[in-house]
Design a protein around this nucleic acid. Structure first.
Ligand SMILES: [Zn+2]
Ligand SMILES: [Zn+2]
Ligand SMILES: [Zn+2]
Ligand SMILES: [Zn+2]
Lengths: 137, 137
DNA sequence: TTGCAAATGCAACAGTGTTGCATTATGAAA
DNA sequence: TTTCATAATGCAACACTGTTGCATTTGCAA
């Protein structure tokens, strides 16, 4: 078969592969009602793979738009599944952070408004409410 | 002098002391238009004291209500001076995080509203807007 | 089935924050 | 001013989180 430019580009394109680690981690996050940290994922998967692999899988899933990163108010990075961003990725929803059990939940139906300050160009919002979750209150 | 219960309590009470490190760090933060990270403070003070001391001074200033902690969207912890919390400490203002110069600014005059989700008890809010600051846009 | 390269495991590293303990120095009391 | 209890510091050592390089394994298209 003759290789045209498109074929050459296709050949150059990095092809993604499905691995056990990727599948398991994705399902774990998708089935979790709360966002999960790297440590929590490591505990849950229990030796499924190296901790470096977890970092790399999380990076890959984030780039692919299957999960999104949430930085908790205490600085702990957590990951949650993407539910309502099939066409365009809009992660500008509010998150709730429980001060007791440290859980982070996506509140995708809660709306918020604010007066845009002039002089600043806003491109992203990161809103987190803290307090007690239903389980802890 | 006979020591009554109150005197004994007074004696027990931990007295705060003013030190060079504490004064310098507090003034540095107070005079900064943007929130400063531990690393930035360490660079700015340039060998004034040990890095552990900076951590402890920041902790003390936070407890005393002279500064407040801000966790940036990238997880970096920064500290900003408290301006409008002389009586009660209300740090529920919006912060702005510049994606280019990584600066964090307190937007104390910007108001925001949101529909409080039921089932959750809200006690704190942590809102950060990202984009380009006046200097970078 | 074969072979390329995506993905992994492992070691080693850098950055950040904490803790214990000996030493220093602050400020109230004498 | 001097004394002295203890708040504060310096230093070493540690734990935790995240990254990088490289050899090896493994997924999958040809
Ligand atoms: Zn909870
Ligand atoms: Zn979310
Ligand atoms: Zn900027
Ligand atoms: Zn602030």
């Amino acid at each position: 078969m003759q290789q045209c430019c498109i074929m050459k580009l296709k050949k150059k394109m990095k092809t993604v592969r499905n691995t056990t680690a990727k599948t398991e981690i994705q399902e774990l996050i998708a089935n979790s009602p709360v966002a999960l940290s790297h440590t929590e994922i490591q505990s849950a998967t229990n030796g499924l793979c190296d901790r470096v692999t977890i970092y790399r899988v999380l990076e890959r899933l984030t780039v692919e738009g299957l999960i999104h990163k949430v930085v908790n108010v205490d600085g702990v990075v957590k990951y949650a599944g993407c539910h309502s961003c099939s066409e365009k990725h809009n992660h500008n929803h509010i998150h709730f952070s429980c001060q007791k059990c440290k859980s982070v939940t996506c509140l995708e139906d809660v709306e918020s408004t604010f007066k845009m300050p002039k002089k600043y160009i806003i491109s992203e919002m990161n809103f987190t409410l803290s307090g007690l979750c239903p389980q802890c209150s």
